[in-house]
């Protein structure tokens, strides 16, 4: 029996590309058990890994997509972090409990510090990249990139102004609600603008790969912050449940915060793993 039939185990795209020449090769040499086994493993490998040329994505595009995924993951994480960071507010009710359980302050500080490290990583990796993209867009006259930049900058500025205005006073409930709605809207708009900017910008593979080291800071910061938040949750629930009533952060807000921190961290790890596996040069295998 000739081994040509085993080629049917290969995916269709593979057979269209290599089927004829492989069949010709198989007709020219005697097939042994090792040949059948090798073809079987080859078919399995092709089913798992082969990407037809028309579906291949340039590595730079793939890296850009991974950077956007990591940034979106950080935004999710950051929102959760901002919610939970207010656990010690109001301080009047937090301080006596924290004096009884020093671990509370320690874990809250660790949570905040790890989050700040992640933010530093984002700034170290992202700001030079955005700066490069905007300078290049200005020189090469790319209005869509510049427009995305201005939307992102305007969102960040409005968010900062709104936060300052709310922080300086003790506003009514409806103003706080309006502030939260505005913040969410601006966050969404800013994230979309940054994602558009990165995806449309003329950035080279080597420039994009420079974000890999800061990404390690981001990932460790996010993971550390998540672990501290979970430990904090366990400690509060077991030793000081009264905090969930007295503090601004109630049980629902705490759960949502940890959920966002977890989602963001997992998404960031997935994005990073995908990006670092991108082969150097040429094209990658799928988006």
């Amino acid at each position: 029996m000739r081994p040509g039939w085993i080629l049917r185990l290969y995916p269709r795209a593979w057979r269209l590309r290599y089927g004829d020449e492989m069949a010709a090769l198989l007709e020219e040499r005697p097939a042994t058990f090792a040949t059948y086994l090798d073809l079987f493993l080859g078919a399995l490998d092709a089913s798992l890994n082969y990407v037809p040329p028309e579906r291949m994505v340039p590595v730079a595009e793939r890296l850009k997509a991974d950077i956007v995924v990591r940034f979106c993951a950080f935004v999710l994480f950051g929102f959760g972090w901002l919610l939970l960071a207010r656990l010690n507010d109001p301080v009047v009710s937090f301080a006596p409990v924290a004096a009884l359980y020093p671990g509370l302050t320690l874990l809250l500080d660790a949570f905040k510090l790890a989050g700040v490290i992640a933010a530093i990583g984002i700034a170290l990796g992202g700001l030079p990249l955005v700066g490069m993209a905007v300078r290049r867009a200005a020189v090469r006259r790319q209005p869509d990139v510049l427009r995305a930049f201005w939307w992102a900058a305007a969102s960040a500025l409005l968010f900062a102004l709104a936060t300052l205005a709310v922080a300086e006073a003790h506003p009514a409930f409806w103003i706080v609600t309006a502030y939260l709605a505005l913040s969410l809207g601006l966050l969404l708009l800013g994230t979309i603008a940054v994602a558009g900017l990165v995806l449309k910008a003329d950035l080279e593979e080597r420039e994009l790969r420079r974000t890999s080291l800061p990404a390690i800071l981001v990932l460790y910061g996010m993971a550390g912050s998540l672990i501290a938040a979970v430990a904090l949750g366990v400690l509060v629930a077991s030793a000081a449940p009264s905090l969930l009533v007295s503090q601004d952060v109630g049980p629902g807000m705490f759960s949502v915060s940890v959920l966002l921190l977890g989602l963001g961290t997992v998404l960031a790890f997935m994005g990073a793993r995908h990006g670092w596996l991108a082969p150097a040069g040429g094209t990658g295998t799928g988006a």
Partner: peptide, 24 residues
């Protein structure tokens, strides 16, 4: 090299732009 391994290698090298096919 057995044919399955050979063509697995050829596909990977082609995807990475390290080799290119000529007219059949």
């Amino acid at each position: 090299l057995e044919p399955g391994t050979l063509y697995g290698a050829i596909a990977r090298l082609e995807q990475r732009g390290l080799i290119e096919p000529l007219p059949a």
